[in-house]
Amino acid sequence: MNFPWVIWPSLWYTFRNWIFANLIIRPYLDRDFTLSSFKSGAIQAIVHVSQELSKGNFGALEGFITKPSLEEAQNNYALLSLKQRLDLAVVAEDIFFCFPYQIGVIFTNEGGPKERIFVEITMCYHIFKGLQDHIESLVKTDGSGPLQGVYDNYDRISIANYRFIREFTKGVDDDWTVNVANHFKPGEYIQEQR
């Protein structure tokens, strides 16, 4: 999708996210909200959404992805090779690093009679296809640490940025929905630049 790549956490956003989560969202919008529980749910979401995207099963994604984002994903899917389509599928065990990059609270018609409140959270996932097999082979061959050599396998590494949105307006019962699902392989980009 047309979304700037997010690869690493930002110290400023990490601090800001803590403030939004603990001083705005939890006390005023959702008393049960925690970043750790959101992160767990977001991992389940990327697994489900990416598996369906990989199969081109867009009907199963209605209600999980906003309509404009689903249309964009459908258009982009047609341009992907078979390998790229298969690479979209993520399993939870292959996610070796993930973090909430940015939390935003959006007010529309602020102060007016039709004021609406939304929260957006952008998540970043670092994915290594076959991570468990890679770790086992490293341990068997040379006893090195489990993440040694992970970034040397750039062809098996991808990064996914998913942005979730939920309406918190009083009287509205809403669920978290994906409005950005962006998968990319930074290693391929680096190889193209050489």
Rank of each mutant, 00 (worst) to 15 (best):
S69P: 10
S69E: 13
E71Q: 12
E71P: 06
E72P: 07
E72V: 08
E72A: 15
Q74F: 10
Q74T: 14
N75G: 13
N75F: 08
N76S: 09
N76A: 07
Y77N: 11
A78D: 13
L79A: 13
L80A: 02
S81H: 06
S81V: 02
L82E: 14
Q84P: 04
Q84N: 06
Q84F: 02
R85D: 03
R85L: 01
L86Q: 11
L86D: 11
L86R: 13
D87E: 13
D87T: 01
L88E: 09
L88V: 02
A89W: 02
A89L: 09
V90I: 15
V90S: 02
V90N: 04
V91P: 00
V91A: 07
A92V: 14
E93K: 10
E93L: 14
E93F: 04
F96E: 03
F97C: 07
C98K: 07
C98S: 13
F99V: 11
F99H: 11
F99L: 07
P100T: 02
Y101N: 15
Y101R: 11
Y101V: 06
Q102C: 04
Q102F: 04
I103F: 09
I103G: 07
I103L: 05
G104S: 12
G104V: 09
I106K: 10
F107E: 10
T108H: 01
T108A: 01
N109Q: 08
E110H: 06
E110I: 05
E110P: 10
G111D: 03
G111Y: 01
G112L: 06
P113I: 15
P113H: 07
K114S: 12
K114H: 05
E115K: 00
E115M: 00
R116G: 12
R116Y: 04
R116A: 14
I117S: 05
F118H: 12
V119N: 00
E120R: 11
E120H: 09
E120A: 07
E120W: 03
I121W: 04
H126N: 07
H126C: 02
I127V: 15
F128Y: 10
F128V: 04
F128C: 08
